[in-house]
């Protein structure tokens, strides 16, 4: 079965994407935990197929300030990975890594940006590494880019990236729980349609 739109995905396809996400987030949590030396869990991911406005609404208000780490995937699977962090998540990380707290994004200096970018990078890389091992795929990741801005503005990046093929986004989302505290963060995996089909072929068809 070939998909031409995200909306065409059936329950099997969504279940598979959720399963992929869950393997990814599990590994990402382990990696983050060993970096921060504190217990990290991640929620079971959700698979959402949403229009632009709905996608933003799910994550907050379009004018909410968030920071995000963006990595582009190329190779067998292409698309983008986006890790969104709010202030409480950043403070949790800074507390563990630099033993400090800040009151707002504007107080982030070079060290803080670097720490936050690295955490996003580790989460994304371990997620993708586990995925590529699982299905024996080659996925290359770009250098991570960091940005602090309005949520709506940040979300236009993946939306524009897929704008020519889809009015919708498929997001595989997972939240972090650090040291038992539910801190506001979201890991989004946004594969393009071709990659979705590739993943389906690779992981579902052999078992049918």
């Amino acid at each position: 079965m070939k998909f031409t739109r995200y909306e065409d995905m059936d329950d099997t396809a969504k279940d598979m994407m959720r399963e992929i996400g869950s393997i990814g987030t599990g590994n990402a949590a382990t990696a983050l935990s060993s970096l921060l030396k504190i217990g990290v869990e991640m929620t079971v991911p959700n698979v959402e197929i949403l229009g632009f406005n709905e996608a933003v609404d799910l994550l907050g208000h379009p004018e909410d300030m968030v920071s995000g780490v963006l990595v582009e995937m190329t190779g067998d699977v292409s698309g983008v990975m986006l890790f969104l962090m709010k202030m409480d998540f950043i403070n949790e990380v800074l507390g563990c890594v630099l033993q400090e707290r800040i009151d707002g994004y504007e107080q982030m200096g070079e060290m803080e940006v670097s720490a936050a970018t690295e955490v996003g990078n580790i989460i994304i890389s371990s997620y993708i590494l586990s995925l590529s091992k699982l299905a024996d795929m080659e996925i290359s990741l770009s250098v991570p880019a960091f940005s602090v801005n309005m949520l709506g503005g940040i979300m236009t990046v993946p939306m524009a990236e897929f704008g020519y093929v889809s009015d919708k986004l498929m997001m595989i989302t997972g939240k972090c729980i650090i040291g038992g505290r539910n801190v506001d963060s979201n890991l989004l995996m946004l594969p393009d349609i071709q990659s979705l089909n590739y993943l389906m072929d690779r992981l579902v068809t052999p078992y049918e």
Partner: peptide
Amino acid sequence: MFDMKSAGGIG
């Protein structure tokens, strides 16, 4: 929004 280092059109 993101200063991507890669050559692609994403940025």
